[in-house]
Simulated scan of single mutants.
Amino acid sequence: MTKIGVGVIGTGFMGKTHALAWRNVKAVMGCAAAPELAVLCDTPLDRAEAFAGQLGFARATDDWRTLVADPAVQVVSITTPNRLHHEMALAALAAGKHVWCEKPMALTLAQAEEMEAAARKAGVVTLVGYNYLRNPAYAHAQRLLAEGAIGRVAQFRGWVDEDYQADPELPWTWRATLAEAGLGALGDLGCHLVSLATGLMGPVESLIADTQVIHQTRPLPEGGRAAVENEDAASALLRFAGGAQGSMVISRSAWGRKSRLGFEVHGTEGMIVYDQERMNELQLYQNRGPLAEQGFKTILTGPAHPPYGAFCPAPGHQLGFNDLKVIECAALVEALSGGAKAHPDFTDALVFERAIHAMAESARTGQRVTL
């Protein structure tokens, strides 16, 4: 595939991120195939048309089904609210289109399983939007573990905190409902943490979890208040299939935290520490040398941590969120061109979905859940 016809559904935060990634991927990463921005969809139509002009799309529409059916579109980016992922993905797969879908895959585990089965049947390329997995610092952490830099891995501690729902007087939105958003903090944030943990530790074998609705109601624009139906916070104790233990804490109501996605991996000979708010750094402790000289080492990412060098030749000058999306897009373009399988595809991402829904189930039942 030398040219890739792209259709993007949605022009919000993630829609613009996808569009920018499609625009920049060949220039930055030197991909063999060239994305062509064919159709942009949003409502109302004048919004779609305005963004199509701004972002360089050939056409705009307010009907996502028109985008999916368009013969100029070979791959569909789905960046809409969660409740629409399932229907749109199934329609795109049925039309033989490749799909790049934002996380979480769907509202329910059953819907995600249906999407995964449909993707396998269609035999097309799929990718789910876990761009934090593309961070060169994270990739280096994976290499360190594979090389035994901290000995036998024994424990994972992870956290993901943001404060976009910390204010109790923040107006009620679709994010507060099971019918529109599905899971709350678990679906919006927790799945990212699960993806990072799985890439470092392997699959989760079992877990026990608890959840909390911190703000039971939120104000409506027309007056009164409406109930919050999904969790603001969650915590879990995990056992990984490889035998290591783990813990996770997740909150969308943690004042002062903007993107505090991080982890510690404890080994028998050291530790690795990462924090997304300092996403170009990795902390490494190794139990080596004189005791008086031991301490954490800060590793700043640079060209020695691919593909950082595709963006900037100078170490320590830093990549950003949108750069990670370009790296993610490059993996999709490679898969579309017959190269390595895109990761995480619908099958890979279903593993993450099962973990977060297992946490929700454990919180409901008070029982440990085996995956």
Rank of each mutant, 00 (worst) to 15 (best):
I299F: 01
L300F: 09
L300E: 13
L300S: 10
T301E: 11
T301K: 00
T301P: 03
G302L: 05
G302Y: 09
P303R: 03
P303V: 02
A304G: 15
A304T: 12
P306K: 15
P307V: 07
P307R: 05
Y308C: 01
Y308I: 02
G309T: 07
A310T: 09
A310G: 11
F311G: 05
P313Y: 04
P313S: 09
A314K: 09
P315F: 05
Q318M: 03
G320E: 15
G320T: 15
G320V: 11
N322Q: 12
N322S: 15
L324V: 00
K325F: 10
V326R: 08
V326Q: 13
V326D: 12
I327R: 01
E328F: 02
E328T: 03
E328A: 07
C329S: 13
A331V: 12
A331T: 14
A331Y: 04
L332P: 05
L332E: 07
E334F: 00
A335R: 05
A335K: 06
A335S: 08
L336W: 11
L336D: 10
S337L: 02
S337C: 07
S337P: 04
G338T: 12
G339I: 03
G339S: 08
G339Q: 08
K341A: 13
H343L: 12
P344D: 06
P344I: 03
D345P: 00
D345H: 00
F346I: 03
F346H: 10
T347V: 02
T347G: 00
T347P: 01
D348A: 07
D348C: 06
A349Q: 08
L350C: 04
L350E: 04
V351T: 13
V351M: 11
V351D: 14
F352P: 05
F352D: 07
F352L: 10
F352Y: 07
E353F: 00
E353I: 08
A355V: 14
A355L: 10
A355C: 14
I356E: 12
I356W: 04
I356K: 11
A358K: 00
A358W: 09
M359P: 01
